[in-house]
Structure formats: structure tokens, C-alpha cells
Design a protein around this nucleic acid. Structure first.
Lengths: 186, 186
DNA sequence: GAATATATGGTACGACTGTTTCAATAACGA
DNA sequence: TCGTTATTGAAACAGTCGTACCATATATTC
């Protein structure tokens, strides 16, 4: 009865829309150029996602999902020195291939500061890392429920990412991370 | 011969426009609402600043100038323990009164990642702090030209600011800074 | 073929954007 | 009073935005 629905189309569109947002950023996102780049029409984007706001939410969820999948496969093992583990995380997250994710990450944070109502789970994106990082750095933590060590580690990583993306000075930021590793292992 | 010019008007407008941008953010800035809030007209904003782009540039310069002035009067003296100096910087920069500056700071950085051509001196805003901070933490630096220690200190501050503005968890971020201070003074 | 449900294209609406054009006003020196 | 210069308002221009409306095409079952 009636033409069959094509739920795969929405997924295909979402995947390509996420590529587009990772490449072009969130700030100036507009339906018409997006649709043109995706060989579809604004009409179909709204047909599949309801509104631009819902489309953006879906794209951000997809981007987070991709990031989480990749992170899961690249977190350094709990073996090795503190320095090796820190370097592993930093090398992975500061790699050029991660730049679009990092850019989107900072963009969402900044937009969330102006429009907190659009990002109800903004804080959760921070605290989500605690369990994983707490386990990775258990030997330098003060206890099993220590949230301060993961907070500091992630602050250093994010702060150096901020510096690196603004200055492009990889040598200096790499050395700063090593200095932090030396401090931490004592 | 002719009506006298009023250069003070531009300065008055710039000051109030900076207040407005600090309160409402850069992202959705529009001439008509801005002019309405400033009891003037889009016509006059363009008359005084030439274009929106030049107006924004002037506002950002004014915001930077204000921030620099306030920082100059609040940097902790080089006396006192490392922990006291770090706490002083953190207390000042993470205070609620600084929130608009911090927000604008993150907003400009994020926009600069998408449109680097609009912010040619993006990197300089980072490295400008090195001399001052290097002097403040000379006793824990490796030498007079050490840029790694200021880089790390600012990374921690910016990273914790990122966390604090996203989660609002002041207790956890305060404790993370203290933990960093303990590591650093060794 | 008829009925039906999904999938699209085309178009236009109303609101907004930065900017320009044209005209008018205001304050001064001569 | 007159010319000159600075200032300002009102309106329009040309464009973009998200979205809604209407018609049509397509694929399926009865």
C-alpha cells in the first residue's frame, strides 16, 4: 500500500551533512548551499529532519558518535609510563586529521556560551571523559573517584589544543605537554 | 567654515557598542538591533565606522584594550608562593565579572578557526602573555627565555576556563588548579 | 487501472541582512 | 543671509535566510 519509505536516505544525507559541517563549520551553515553540496534540496532536508535546528542536532550527535568511536580505538593502554600515555592522547587528538573535530568542538562550546538553551548537555560532554581518563591515569590519581586528575589532564589537553589551533606552534605545545608529563609522574 | 566635526561621538558609540557586544556576543551581531540599543541608527554606525567589519574590528580592539588595562592592575606580585600566584591569576580571570570577556575570547577564537583571514594577529594574542607570565613564574622556569612554562600555565588556565564555562563546576575546577600548583612547586 | 502513501520540484512568503541613495537639518564662518 | 561642512532620517536595494504551500512524480497494493 503506497510507495515504500526509504529510511536509508536520511542516514545517507546525515553522513554527508556531517562531512560538510566538519569541513565548513557550524557558524555560517545554510540550507541552500548545504543542499547543493549534497545533491539534494532544502525541501528534502526539511522533509527528512523537520527543521534546521533538528538537522544541526542530528549532525552534532553524529559527529560526537564518530569521535567516540575513533577515540575508543586509540586510547593508550594503561600500561607504559605516564608520559607515554599522555603523549599518546596528545598525539592522537592534536593530529591534523582531528582538526575538523577540534574546530567543531570549539565552535559548539563558544555557541553554547551565548545560547546555553540550545545545548542542554554541554556539561556532560566534559564529564563523560572522567571514567575513561580516570582509569587511564589511575596510578597518579588520589583515589578511584578522583575527578580532579582527569579534570586537570583534560584542561591541559584542551588548553594546549586552544594554543596550537591559534598559533600553529606544534613544537612549543609538544614541549609543554612533556613538561606537564614530567610534573605529573612525580 | 561649516559645522564642526564631533570626533567624541565615535568614541562614545564605540564604548557603548563594546558593552553591547560583551553582553550579547559577536555571533548574531546585527546593525539594526545594535543601533536601537545605542539610541542611534545603522546609518550613523556606518557613517562613523565605514562598514560592519571595521566596526567589529574596533570593538574587538577596544575589548582587548579594556582587558589589558584590568589585567595590568591585577597580576599578582612575584612575591608569595607559586600556589598563591596561580590562585591569584585564576581567581581574577575566572571571576563572574570577567565572564563576558572570557565568552568573547572563546567566541573570537572559534570564529578565527573558521575564518583565519579575519584575525591575522590571532596567534599574537597567545604569545603576548609570555613575557609577563614568564616574569611572574621565573622561579619555576628553566631559564629567562623559557616559553614552555608560560605555555603550560596558560594552557591550564584556559583549559579550566573552558571546563568552568561549560559545566559551571567551580569547586572541581578550583581543586584542579590547586593540584596543578602542587605539581608545579616541586 | 484505481487507490494510496512516499518522495520531490518549484515557488513564494515574510523577515532579516549590510549597504546605498536622496533629501533634509544643523551649526558654524564670512 | 549665504555658502559650507557635518550630521542625520527615511526609504529602498539586492540579497539571504528558514520555511510553507501546492502540485506532481513515483512506487506499491488491491
Amino acid at each position: 500500500m503506497g510507495r515504500p519509505a526509504d529510511p536509508a536516505r536520511r542516514e545517507r544525507t546525515l553522513a554527508r551533512a556531517t562531512d560538510y559541517v566538519l569541513a565548513h563549520g557550524l557558524a555560517g551553515l545554510s540550507l541552500r548551499p548545504l543542499a547543493a553540496a549534497l545533491d539534494t534540496s532544502p525541501r528534502m532536508l526539511l522533509y527528512d529532519f523537520g527543521s534546521k535546528q533538528e538537522l544541526v542536532a542530528a549532525v552534532l550527535a553524529e559527529a560526537r558518535r564518530r569521535g567516540a568511536v575513533r577515540l575508543a580505538g586509540h586510547l593508550p593502554a594503561e600500561t607504559g609510563s605516564v608520559q607515554e600515555r599522555l603523549r599518546g592522547i596528545w598525539a592522537w587528538i592534536s593530529a591534523d586529521e582531528r582538526a575538523p573535530f577540534v574546530r567543531l568542538f570549539f565552535e559548539v562550546h563558544a555557541d553554547g556560551l551565548v545560547h546555553p538553551e540550545n545545548y542542554p548537555d554541554q556539561g556532560q560532554a566534559i564529564t563523560d571523559w572522567f571514567d575513561t581518563l580516570g582509569a587511564t591515569f589511575r596510578d597518579v590519581s588520589t583515589g578511584p573517584d578522583d575527578t580532579v586528575t582527569p579534570t586537570l589532564v583534560m584542561a591541559v589537553v584542551r588548553g594546549l589544543l586552544f594554543d596550537l589551533t591559534a598559533t600553529g606552534d606544534r613544537h612549543r605545545t609538544d614541549r609543554a605537554l612533556d613538561r606537564f608529563a614530567e610534573l605529573l609522574k612525580q
